[in-house]
Design a protein around this nucleic acid. Structure first.
Lengths: 201, 201
DNA sequence: GTGTTACCGTAACATACGTTACGGGAGGTG
DNA sequence: CACCTCCCGTAACGTATGTTACGGTAACAC
């Protein structure tokens, strides 16, 4: 053979460029040319690596889920008290720092792109159900006395709360500041009976 | 003079077409031609009514806020118990039926469009803060014993919960069914100490 | 009925998009 | 060093976009 390219690394670099463009310019600004420029290459390379725009978006979406999943796995495997692990996972899913805010923008852009792309909708659903199941496991660990339905309802509430905060923080970082997010999260955990030390109101 | 047109009615019809296209095709499918076709006219009329695409989007966004605001005003002015009114308002903001699901799709599309349009971001923030203030008034009415901070935190949590559910229901109507949304909302209200008759866990 | 005015559809424009095809050249192989 | 293979940038193509300009025409005044 003659010449080799690290295709996996290229696909990764291009996917990360997709994230940045999605966060910066939203779905309508996500063009192949913008992605290529962001990745430091041309549309030629992008379309040699991916058969088309849709599969590029799908790949980048999957990679995003994979990355965050790994971080969450590590947090979930932590040896803290179940309630602390739960809080860590939810806090990590929130938009507490600029990096997370950026990720929330990507998440939001992808969800909107899923409005017109069934493939992306399926991928979103898969990722969200995975997150929901994770939160469910942690809630069940904190409250083994709860039945499945109660675990499901509270887990759904916590997931919706965090994702809602993320979405809202995208447009209004002032109202949904890190402090506000932390207070909301702690209040919810306390009121749901999932606080670390003592049960709160 | 010679010929008159009901400009307000046209602007309204075109704005409603914007909503339908946004819900159906997302921000990247929202083109002037698609809007014109949906409104039953041509790009000529659209651009005689609005100076450009951006102001069309802005107008349609404002009209959306105005419409939902009127409905909410009526609910808020209802003569039920404060806790019931609060629940009504939140339930009405959720995606409990296909019409609301459609509205959630529009909301989501606009929020994603705001990623690349500061003007839309400002409008989103204005609308959301208005909703947040409304929920705050209702929470304060249910719990006059709470101080401002507690009202703010719980209101923020409720708003984030509802909007989060809306966003997630867009892609996964099965997991975030009407029943699931109702259960989540009731559980949150109960746990936060905002239930109608008796305080729940 | 006739004239005038405002309305709005048609069509063109420049740009930008996704996608395809081609060619130079870099880098392994012998 | 020479060859050959496979990258990947360049450039083109057709389509679609936002926007502009023009012209036909419908409706009101007289």
């Amino acid at each position: 053979m003659s010449r080799t390219a690290d295709r996996a690394a290229q696909a990764e670099r291009i996917s990360e460029a997709v994230w940045r463009i999605m966060a910066e310019s939203g779905p309508q600004g996500l063009t192949l040319r913008a992605v290529a420029a962001e990745a430091g290459c041309t549309t030629g390379l992008v379309l040699h690596r991916f058969p088309g725009k849709r599969s590029l978006l799908a790949h980048a979406r999957d990679l995003l889920h994979e990355r965050t999943g790994e971080v969450m796995d590590r947090l979930e495997a932590g040896d803290g008290a179940p309630a602390d692990v739960l809080r860590d996972v939810l806090a990590h899913a929130a938009s507490l720092d600029p990096v997370k805010r950026q990720e929330a923008r990507v998440w939001l852009g992808y969800l909107a792109a899923a409005l017109a792309d069934e493939d992306l909708a399926v991928r979103h659903t898969r990722a969200n159900r995975s997150f929901l199941a994770r939160v469910g496991r942690l809630v069940a660990a904190v409250r083994p006395d709860w039945d499945g339905r109660e675990v499901a309802v509270v887990s759904t509430a916590l997931v919706a709360l965090v994702e809602g905060v993320n979405a809202l923080a995208v447009a209004d970082a002032e109202t949904y500041s890190a402090e506000a997010q932390g207070a909301v999260l702690d209040r919810a955990l306390g009121s749901f009976g999932l606080a670390g030390r003592a049960a709160a109101t």
